[in-house]
Amino acid sequence: MTQAHTTTASAPVTVLGLGDMGRSLARAFVAAGHPTTVWNRSPGKGEDVVALGAVRAASAEEAVRASGLVVCLVDYDASDAVLEPLAGALEGRVLVNLTSDTPARSRQAAAWAAKHSLAYLAGAIMVPVDVVGSADALVFHSGDRAAFAAHEDTLKALGEPATYLGEDHGLAAAYDMAMLDFFYGAMGGLVHAFALARAEGIDGASLAPYLHTIAGILPPIAELTAADVDTRTYAGDGGNLAMMAAGVDHILHTAKGHRLDVSQLAGLKSVTDRAIAEGHGTSSWSSIIEVIAADR
């Protein structure tokens, strides 16, 4: 397998797909001094990045042949149709697909790349469009280690450091799904908290400052929970599951009293009840993984 090995600050890069995130990536590459070629399936997008200095290609093949590093932001269904005819043009280049999808889909795409002897990286962008290219940007990469090493300096334009997770192409998507699992669960709880507050006559602006206290204790809790689940030891010294499940029950009854949707809370209560029934009442909250995980 051959691959372009250009790591200077002026290394050219191509961006396929000019939605909000694609344009944000293109802007980051241009700002970092990389000659940037862009292409989008439908016309009329990307005028802003062209105005900044990006070059619009007339076709996907022209865009691919312009650079040794090709970054794809087209969803997998569309990218299959776009990339299949370009296998020949991609030879000797590194393809990086930053489309958010499942780990299984990432591995399927990697199998397609392997069939065509293409250097391939799968990735996941973990920040909003306006954070890309800043010191706070987190972008995961997984797959071909040599391809990542060859273009790490260029990929740092999106967020430094560029985070490489390993050779399994599904890893970036797996981290993405796990982190979004936490995010959307937390967002659901946040909105439900505002709904409960509203039902009690409390406006959101009055509650919000106090929620920072809860948010602030989550990072150390994440570290402790990681240690619990990795070692499968669940010491309930700081508050056992039975005590915390009682708190869930109180919230559930309060919400039901206001006729709120309680599907998320009811699901959580079901999990805690099952864990307690299996003997984890004196264990930490982390022990509920023993009824959630398939490998228990």
Rank of each mutant, 00 (worst) to 15 (best):
residue 56 R to M: 12
residue 51 A to I: 15
residue 112 W to V: 09
residue 11 A to L: 06
residue 44 G to Y: 04
residue 27 R to V: 12
residue 136 D to A: 09
residue 101 D to L: 11
residue 44 G to V: 05
residue 117 S to M: 03
residue 13 V to K: 06
residue 121 L to N: 15
residue 64 V to I: 12
residue 122 A to Q: 13
residue 149 A to F: 06
residue 43 P to K: 14
residue 147 A to T: 00
residue 131 V to C: 14
residue 105 R to W: 00
residue 71 V to H: 04
residue 70 V to E: 05
residue 26 A to R: 05
residue 89 A to C: 13
residue 55 V to M: 04
residue 24 S to Y: 05
residue 18 L to C: 09
residue 104 A to S: 13
residue 131 V to R: 04
residue 21 M to N: 07
residue 35 P to W: 09
residue 53 G to H: 03
residue 69 L to A: 10
residue 26 A to C: 09
residue 98 L to R: 04
residue 114 A to G: 15
residue 132 V to I: 13
residue 40 N to K: 10
residue 100 S to G: 14
residue 90 L to Y: 08
residue 35 P to D: 01
residue 72 C to M: 07
residue 125 I to K: 13
residue 130 D to P: 03
residue 29 F to T: 03
residue 53 G to W: 00
residue 42 S to E: 09
residue 94 V to R: 08
residue 52 L to R: 11
residue 21 M to D: 01
residue 153 D to K: 13
residue 141 H to R: 06
residue 102 T to K: 04
residue 89 A to L: 04
residue 151 H to F: 10
residue 155 L to N: 05
residue 136 D to G: 02
residue 72 C to K: 03
residue 126 M to P: 02
residue 27 R to P: 01
residue 80 D to Q: 14
residue 100 S to Y: 04
residue 128 P to R: 08
residue 62 E to K: 11
residue 145 R to L: 10
residue 102 T to I: 11
residue 91 E to H: 12
residue 140 F to Q: 09
residue 142 S to F: 01
residue 32 A to D: 04
residue 151 H to Y: 01
residue 143 G to C: 12
residue 83 L to G: 06
residue 120 Y to K: 05
residue 106 S to F: 12
residue 144 D to M: 09
residue 38 V to I: 15
residue 121 L to G: 12
residue 29 F to L: 12
residue 86 L to W: 03
residue 13 V to A: 02
residue 14 T to I: 00
residue 142 S to M: 05
